[in-house]
Design a protein around this nucleic acid. Structure first.
Length: 497
RNA sequence: GCGCCUCUAGCUCAACGGCAGAGCAACGGACUCUUAAUCCGCAGGUUGGGGGUUCGAAUCCCCCGGGGCGCACCA
């Protein structure tokens, strides 16, 4: 928090004077074992037994129980917890040890022992303060629950709520598993520009920034799609990128302005191939990270085991509304149905947009899945290739899980002339005031004229995948530092202020 | 952007028109095997900010600010 004077006043009064000076703090500390390594390595020690092995550990003192001439501390590191056992006479500077504050970082060394009451411990002979905690980490039993403090001061949340650490660890493992599986499948990882002269590849409002030397505005990317397809044109037959996207839109429990996707392009493949790859990837990542594809999400069973159901958008809308619709249905009928469903119908919308709106309003949120929703209207899919058998539709699917879109994919449009027409339609929408309509990208059209082979592409939301795998309902829980309104002095609550 | 809810000690929470409290943390002390140790003592607050109603406001009303949820938008 902004904390005007908070450190100087409140915390010192709360914590007392500084117990260490900078010169007391060493520059390094030699750690021989993690807490978990000690728990695993000396598990056979009997109560009251002292091993001949001396270890050194480091971490935060989370609890301290002093009992006169003997004291017990709980030391937590990134692997777990180990008890520190200190005794007057055996522990160097015992009087200072028992004055340690909850949250202080210490390094401690000594033999591994099991206390008479059965707790595996490091019997502290020597120890050193590695950092003072001048602010508290909250109630030692109840922790910190205030969501604002948890999101703004994640460093506090991580110590106060171990589940936070676990979620971020799962996130790291998900990204790693995704990478390794794609590498194994022969995909090459690339990086494309985040600063875009034209924001393309999706329908969304961008963030605008400015380059001083070039004297030009640039946009934070809303999707890497067009650059990745240019790499396919350049000869990368299987490429992927894992990275941050930025969309200047509302914040909600399922939307953060910056979020992470994996986007991949696969030459010579179509959207049917891509469905098989997506379900295998998601199920494989779940297995790598959790050891299972049978999840429980928000109290409800969710089985990611392939194959996933495949159903067309029209079929699913009919299932959920009882009304057969298609892009060939008269526009007036579709508009009436959409209005009936609560959609604010825009007069410029064609049948395709109306069908898509009807689907999103009545059906998507009801789909528990996982299910591949296939065959989208061309009107809402300016980068997808026309369906080989269904006029007015494109070969596109979205993977829907727990009522939300997890992935979006299509057989890519490869015809530059057709692409130019699609861009022109988008430009017409933009001229009518739709600021989310896709911008025309001449660089991309030029690239297409060199020849894009048949290609399938997909974008998959990493944050949402992590939400599924960690059973969390709020996207902020799986982002270390979610976007919040900037703090202003004296407005935010929090420990230590 | 709109609606509803919420903000009290460092943390977690009471008090809901009538003296602002508790537990934990902190501070001082006792205690040589604790497990949220225990025990004794002490201190800690412009009740998010501002304004209003009232004999009296943490409590009711208005404005502002932060946050949560829902809607809208999207992934």
């Amino acid at each position: 928090m902004a904390d005007p004077g908070g450190l100087a006043g409140g915390v010192r009064a709360q914590r007392g004077p500084a117990r260490a000076t900078v010169s007391d703090i060493p520059y390094r500390y030699e750690v021989s074992h993690s807490a978990a390594a000690i728990q695993q390595g000396w598990g056979a020690l009997e109560p009251g037994e002292e091993s001949a092995d001396t270890v050194s550990v480091a971490g935060r003192v989370m609890l301290l129980r002093t009992q006169g001439k003997v004291a017990f501390g709980e030391l937590r590191d990134s692997s777990g917890t180990i008890q520190l056992f200190a005794q007057a006479g055996a522990t160097r500077d015992y009087e200072a040890f028992v004055r340690l504050a909850l949250g202080d970082w210490v390094g401690a060394s000594g033999p591994v022992v099991r206390t008479r009451r059965g707790e595996l411990s490091v019997a502290v002979r020597d120890w050193v303060l590695l950092a003072e905690a001048r602010r508290s980490f909250g109630d030692k039993w109840r922790g910190v629950h205030d969501p604002e403090t948890r999101f703004r001061q994640r460093e506090v949340d991580l110590w106060a709520n171990p589940a936070t650490r676990r979620r971020l660890e799962v996130r790291s493992q998900v990204v790693r598993a995704m990478r390794e599986r794609l590498w194994q499948a022969g995909f090459v990882e690339v990086e494309t520009p985040i600063l875009n002269p034209v924001p393309g590849g999706a329908e969304a409002r961008p963030f605008v920034t400015h380059h001083n030397a070039l004297g030009t505005d640039l946009y934070l990317r809303i999707a890497p799609e067009l650059y990745l397809k240019r790499l396919v044109i350049g000869g990368f037959e299987k490429v992927f990128e894992i990275g941050r996207l930025f969309r200047n839109e509302g914040i909600s429990p399922r939307h953060n302005p910056e979020f992470t996707t994996v986007e991949l392009y696969w030459a010579y493949a179509d959207y049917q191939d891509m469905m098989a790859l997506v379900e295998a990837l998601v199920a494989g990542v779940a297995t790598d990270v959790l050891g299972t594809t049978a999840l429980v999400y928000q109290g409800r069973d969710l089985d990611l085991t392939p194959p996933w159901r495949r159903a067309t958008m029209a079929e699913l809308v009919e299932e959920h509304t009882g009304r057969a619709v298609s892009v060939a249905t008269p526009r007036s009928e579709l508009a009436a149905l959409a209005a009936e469903a609560g959609v604010a119908v825009d007069p410029s919308w064609g049948p395709g947009k109306l069908v898509a709106e009807l689907y999103e309003k009545t059906t998507e949120g009801q789909l528990w899945g996982p299910v591949f929703v296939t065959d989208y209207p061309e009107e809402v899919s300016p980068l997808a290739r026309p369906h080989r058998a269904q006029p007015g539709l494109v070969e596109r699917f979205e993977a829907v899980v727990a009522g939300r879109e997890l992935a979006n994919a299509f057989s890519e449009l490869t015809d530059p002339e057709e692409q130019r027409r699609r861009f022109a339609e988008q430009a017409a929408r933009r001229a009518r005031g739709d600021d989310e309509a896709m911008a025309l990208d001449e660089e991309y059209l030029r690239a297409m004229e060199y020849g894009l082979p048949p290609t399938a592409g997909v974008g998959l939301g990493i944050d949402r995948l992590v939400m599924l795998l960690t059973d969390t309902a709020n996207i902020r829980e799986v982002i270390a530092f979610p976007t919040l309104r900037p703090e202003r002095p004296g407005t935010a609550p929090g420990p230590g202020a």
